[in-house]
Write a protein that binds this DNA or RNA. Structure first.
Lengths: 314, 314
DNA sequence: AGTAAACATGACAAGTAATGGCATGATTAA
DNA sequence: TTAATCATGCCATTACTTGTCATGTTTACT
């Protein structure tokens, strides 16, 4: 085995083991202790952060977290990593922030000048526009860790009315529109609720809980319509056009020959208040046929608005 | 110079040069031609995709695009790359799709089993929720390239009324809410318009244009209020709460002692129709004081809604 | 057809690097 | 004090690398 290959193997071995003696390595790789010392010197020169403790029970210890074997990338592949990082650029708080920065530096330095220019250009010509938030989400990483480890948390939460204490088990976190959300099982209310991570004031305690539990993926998939309601809407041509750009509806729009169309979908009652604003915006371009609740909601809202802005009342 | 170092240097050299003869390498690195052949054999064994053409005018050629020097990552750094790719997961069409996949595979394979599990878990517990689109954006990469190269395009565009031909110079592309947008200078209208990339039917022609032009970053920065209007809104306590979560306004909300508040901002007239839906949703929680146009718009929309849903007209 | 430019491969000697063995010293815990 | 451990130097031996030379093959040019 070539020396280079052996050094790599030793690198991996010591990374996995963290602490070891020269004799162990000598046995493992069938080389002399003297050579082990030489190899460790070489690795150290190559940047492996390692230190030795003298004396009985001493040994060598790798400081950092584990390193992976060196990887070869093509230029395009590196650009794709920059591209992905660009997508994260608009989030204020991110887990792995430090790692992203270190990877960025490593990769950027290794690029030839012209490729650096290419990356710079890419950054200037493509963007992922999530509203840039000024809201801090300092507990994001903690909550994510709690989700992955499956811990129960007691948190202080700033809810609609006041700051309350909640006993929850997080399911996961997701970013939506620049904010971080956490669905979590609430032990007191005995159901899954959605929390905003930035509204968590503090984590009071964290208990490891080994029982199996749903994760975010499953929760997304299992999202069920509990009280189904039929939504039936007639659309003008322009209404069709706009609804096709609307992620909630694009699957449910049927277009007839004149270019007008209809939405016919079954949705959950709870979604009603969420979709109402869309139909407000559409105005005459969308006429709701069913459900009656939504029509009444529209009517009520319109009346409120009209009352508030009576003619002459400026 | 050690052999290992020389091999790395040769790797970089041949990647940059693509095609070369053994003699050239021998001269460059001051080694014999025989050794060059041996080194190339080694590199080939190490996976460098290289082939040789026999005969006069023959030589060695590297097949792939350029490779970069091998890089060492810590486990956490690799996880951060997966994390970034996860953020891209919800976009349907992406430039660099193939590269992202190959990087993913390379990295995943190199991870130890337990770290693979960690990545899998991460995927299950964190999500970036952009509405999952079913709209194809096949020309995305072309448009991005055109932006970076600074080309003028003639495109067929599916606009509000019909399919028209446009002569444009793209400024860049950005993703927003799962859709890809392209601001571009329209030569006919002599101003910058915003296009939806999925509505581009075809690129008819592309002309390289070396003149300097604004890029996306500058365009975002230079976004100017052309016809400023003062927006003044009174908010209830709940109105304050909701507006603080609204990226457009969170900087402009002032809260007074009772928890109620006001929005006082200067916005562009063109944004009016865009912000109206928010105030619809807020209903009585927000009362617009200025501008009059917005109030009239609200009133008009409310009247339309009421007319459409007259009592008894179900 | 002949020649020159290239790759491909083998043999061998000379040179260089890596290794193991041994010795010595330093540090630390039992 | 002793045993376990790292640290370093020296040297003979072994293993590897290199250059030179020789021989073949393929291909393009004249």
């Amino acid at each position: 085995m070539s020396k280079a290959k052996r050094l790599l193997d030793i690198l991996l071995f010591v990374n996995a083991k963290r602490k070891f003696t020269a004799q162990e390595l000598a046995d493992e790789f069938k080389i002399s202790v003297r050579t082990v010392h030489r190899d460790l010197l070489d690795l150290s020169d190559m940047g492996l952060p390692i230190y030795a403790e003298q004396g009985r029970n001493g040994g060598h210890t790798v400081i950092t977290t584990r390193l992976l074997p060196p990887m070869l990338f093509t230029e395009e592949e590196v650009v794709s990593i920059f591209f992905a990082f660009q997508a994260l650029n608009y989030y204020r708080d991110l887990p792995f922030d430090a790692e992203i920065r270190s990877v960025t530096h490593k990769l950027y330095r290794s690029l030839p000048k012209d490729a650096q220019a290419k990356v710079d250009k890419l950054r200037s010509y493509i963007a992922f526009w999530n509203p840039k938030r000024t809201i801090d989400t300092p507990l994001l990483k903690n909550v994510l860790d709690a989700s992955i480890e499956g811990s129960q948390l007691h948190i202080q939460y700033h809810s609609k009315k006041a700051i309350t204490t909640k006993h929850i088990r997080p399911i996961g976190v997701y970013a939506h529109n620049g904010l971080w959300y956490m669905p979590a099982y609430d032990f007191h209310k005995d159901k899954v609720l959605l929390f905003r991570v930035d509204r968590i004031h503090a984590i009071i305690s964290s208990i490891k809980d080994d029982s199996n539990f749903t994760n975010l993926e499953e929760w997304f998939d299992s999202y069920e319509v509990t009280t189904p309601i039929r939504l039936l809407v007639e659309l003008s041509k322009e209404g069709v056009r706009q609804c096709l750009s609307e992620p909630n509806f694009q699957g449910f729009v049927t277009i007839n020959e004149h270019g007008t169309g209809t939405i016919d979908a079954v949705i959950d009652e709870g979604e009603l208040h969420f979709i109402a604003p869309l139909f407000y915006r559409l105005g005459l371009h969308a006429k709701i046929i069913e459900p009656e609740e939504l029509i009444q909601h529209m009517r009520k809202q319109a009346k409120e608005i009209l009352t508030m802005y009576q003619e002459g009342n400026l």
